[in-house]
Amino acid sequence: MELSDYLPILIYFAAGLAVAGAIFALSKLVRPRPNPMKALPYESGILPAAPVRQRFSIDFYLTAMLFIVFDIELAFLYPVAVTLRDDGLLGLVVLLVFVFTVIEALVYIWKKGALEWR
């Protein structure tokens, strides 16, 4: 393989960085400016006693990320199995290593308590 074979990938990567940078710069230019009138209470006229924006627990985000990771891994399990079907015993071994790795990761995060809501 020559270096010129990787030129399209380099162009794609550079274009991605340029688009991300342009979007970031544009968002800084056209962002809404703070308006004190919007901070005033409406309807009841009662001033809020606590900040309106409350933070979610990190457990919510951690559980959501773990769900996405394991969901994607299991969604790819069938296409990988179909693709490796023609490889015979080697394909089966590769698939079993993948499944074992997923199960091992699940047992690890389970023992760490990442799936427990506090």
Rank of each mutant, 00 (worst) to 15 (best):
residue 1 M to N: 09
residue 1 M to G: 15
residue 1 M to Q: 08
residue 2 E to D: 10
residue 2 E to Y: 13
residue 2 E to A: 09
residue 5 D to T: 08
residue 6 Y to D: 04
residue 7 L to I: 15
residue 7 L to E: 09
residue 9 I to T: 13
residue 10 L to F: 08
residue 11 I to A: 10
residue 11 I to D: 04
residue 11 I to T: 09
residue 12 Y to N: 12
residue 13 F to I: 11
residue 14 A to Q: 04
residue 14 A to T: 07
residue 15 A to P: 00
residue 16 G to P: 01
residue 17 L to Y: 06
residue 18 A to S: 03
residue 20 A to D: 00
residue 22 A to V: 05
residue 23 I to Y: 05
residue 23 I to E: 07
residue 24 F to V: 10
residue 24 F to R: 12
residue 24 F to E: 08
residue 25 A to L: 09
residue 25 A to Y: 09
residue 26 L to D: 05
residue 26 L to W: 10
residue 27 S to L: 11
residue 28 K to H: 14
residue 29 L to G: 06
residue 29 L to S: 13
residue 30 V to H: 07
residue 31 R to V: 10
residue 32 P to L: 14
residue 32 P to E: 11
residue 33 R to T: 07
residue 33 R to Q: 10
residue 34 P to V: 04
residue 34 P to R: 04
residue 36 P to A: 03
residue 36 P to L: 06
residue 36 P to Y: 10
residue 37 M to H: 14
residue 37 M to D: 15
residue 37 M to C: 07
residue 38 K to I: 09
residue 39 A to C: 08
residue 39 A to P: 03
residue 40 L to P: 05
residue 42 Y to F: 12
residue 42 Y to S: 10
residue 43 E to H: 08
residue 43 E to Y: 10
residue 43 E to P: 00
residue 46 I to Q: 11
residue 47 L to W: 12
residue 48 P to C: 02
residue 48 P to L: 07
residue 48 P to E: 09
residue 49 A to T: 07
residue 49 A to C: 04
residue 50 A to V: 14
residue 53 R to Y: 07
residue 53 R to P: 01
residue 54 Q to P: 01
residue 54 Q to M: 09
residue 56 F to E: 09
residue 57 S to R: 10
residue 58 I to A: 15
residue 62 L to K: 09
residue 62 L to P: 01
residue 63 T to G: 07
residue 63 T to R: 14
residue 63 T to A: 14
residue 64 A to W: 12
residue 64 A to D: 06
residue 65 M to R: 11
residue 66 L to F: 10
residue 68 I to Q: 02
residue 68 I to E: 02
residue 70 F to L: 04
residue 70 F to E: 02
residue 71 D to L: 14
residue 74 L to H: 11
residue 75 A to Q: 06
residue 76 F to N: 06
residue 76 F to E: 04
residue 77 L to F: 12
residue 79 P to A: 11
residue 79 P to G: 09
residue 79 P to Y: 02
residue 80 V to P: 01
residue 81 A to R: 05
residue 82 V to H: 13
residue 83 T to H: 13
residue 83 T to W: 15
residue 84 L to I: 04
residue 84 L to R: 02
residue 85 R to D: 14
residue 85 R to Q: 14
residue 85 R to L: 11
residue 85 R to V: 07
residue 85 R to P: 03
residue 86 D to L: 11
residue 86 D to S: 15
residue 87 D to F: 15
residue 88 G to H: 01
residue 88 G to R: 02
residue 89 L to A: 11
residue 89 L to R: 12
residue 90 L to V: 15
residue 92 L to T: 12
residue 93 V to G: 03
residue 93 V to N: 06
residue 94 V to C: 05
residue 94 V to R: 00
residue 94 V to M: 11
residue 95 L to S: 10
residue 97 V to W: 06
residue 97 V to K: 08
residue 100 F to H: 12
residue 101 T to W: 13
residue 101 T to E: 12
residue 102 V to H: 02
residue 103 I to R: 04
residue 105 A to V: 07
residue 106 L to S: 06
residue 106 L to R: 01
residue 107 V to I: 15
residue 108 Y to R: 14
residue 112 K to G: 03
residue 112 K to Y: 05
residue 115 L to W: 02
residue 115 L to K: 00
residue 118 R to V: 02
residue 118 R to Y: 08
